[in-house]
């Protein structure tokens, strides 16, 4: 199974001894996704079936049900058809390898590790209710555990009690927080946050922003202003803009990613709520169409249930 990984120079041994715990967790977190996804594929392929159009149609259905989207699904299926012909694949179970390979190829293109230099400002953006504040809580925990000095900036000055919510996370993680009154200008909170970060020598600055629908022009302008302030005031910092996406989101996520990218140069995606039954297949479309990599995935409610994304591990966890 998954023979094509062996061809990859990536060291299996390393992977095993290195982060076995993490990998196991990822696998566990993705259990439901995997069960839904691969169990279905297996049930199609296990019968020693012939490789025909009907088989591909059923695979197409599975991908669409995983929110991969019509366009990307058709692309994947077309590639699979060509390869199946080229490699003269006769048995249906080899098709699974082919599918894993296709998804891996999309996710792996231009992959580079998520490197954090000090100082790094991470701007967390997204539509309403995707889990931005909770994700910041988890990120703060992660970097704190790595021994970094973390500063939270409460730039969601709009939603009722958003600042209080972030404060609770600051308390849990024992890190500092910069905040203003509810209703104040978020860009000025970021301005103060950066000043504080410089003064206190923070390594990681996590900026919470208010949830906003990408088609609200004025709210996107507000976000651009925040981004401009960050760039101008923190020129020696590495600035990452991470878009938080709810795994249950459908095709609209592509539009979200596109518009947020245009506005504030999104450098990565955090895919949350993967512990439900949603498959989050839309990230495959987003990678394929917009080349935005996934950086973290949220696989549970626990504070340490946020994991760094690695396409190889992801595809493995999905298919094994």
């Amino acid at each position: 199974m998954l023979n094509f990984f062996k061809k990859n120079k990536k060291e299996d041994a390393n992977l095993e001894k290195d982060k076995k715990g993490l990998y196991q967790k990822l696998k566990d977190g993705l259990t439901r996704t995997r069960n839904n996804f691969t169990a279905k594929i297996d049930s199609i392929l296990s019968l020693g079936r012939k490789i025909d159009d009907e088989l591909f149609e059923e695979l197409e259905e599975i991908l669409i049900l995983a929110d991969v989207g019509v366009v990307t699904t058709e692309k994947i299926i077309e590639n699979m058809k060509i390869k199946a012909k080229e490699q003269k694949i006769k048995e249906a179970d080899k098709i699974k390898d082919l599918l894993a390979e296709e998804i891996y190829n999309i996710m792996e293109v231009n992959e580079r590790p998520f490197n954090i230099t000090s100082p790094t400002l991470i701007l967390i953006v997204g539509v309403n209710g995707v889990g931005k504040t909770t994700t910041i809580g988890k990120l703060a925990n992660k970097y704190k555990n790595e021994g970094k000095k973390v500063l939270l900036v409460a730039a969601d000055t709009f939603r009722a009690a958003a600042i209080d919510q972030l404060e609770v996370w600051a308390g849990r993680n024992n890190c500092e927080i910069i905040k203003h009154e509810e209703g104040s200008d978020p860009a000025s909170v970021v301005f103060d946050g950066i000043k504080a970060a410089k003064a206190r020598g923070a390594d990681i600055i996590l900026c919470d922003t208010a949830g906003r629908l990408h088609n609200k022009k004025n709210l996107m302008e507000e976000l651009k202003k925040i981004y401009r302030v960050a760039q101008r005031e923190f020129d020696n910092a590495n600035i990452e803009t991470l878009l938080v996406l709810d795994a249950t989101t459908g095709q609209n996520a592509v539009q979200q990613a596109k518009i947020f990218k245009e506005a504030v140069n999104v450098t990565g995606i955090i895919l949350t709520k993967l512990d439900g039954t949603a498959k989050g297949g839309i990230v495959i479309s987003i990678k394929s169409e917009l080349d935005i990599p996934v950086r973290f995935i949220g696989v549970g409610e626990g504070i340490d249930d946020l994991q760094e994304f690695d396409s190889e591990k992801f595809v493995r966890a999905l298919f094994e």
Binding site: I64, L65, A66, D67, V127, G129, D246, T248, T249, G250, Q251, N252, A253, G276, T277, A278, K279, I282
Partner: peptide, 12 residues
């Protein structure tokens, strides 16, 4: 229900 939900909404 979030109007942007995808295929999984039926399970929910």
């Amino acid at each position: 229900v979030d109007a942007m939900t995808g295929q999984d909404v039926v399970n929910v």
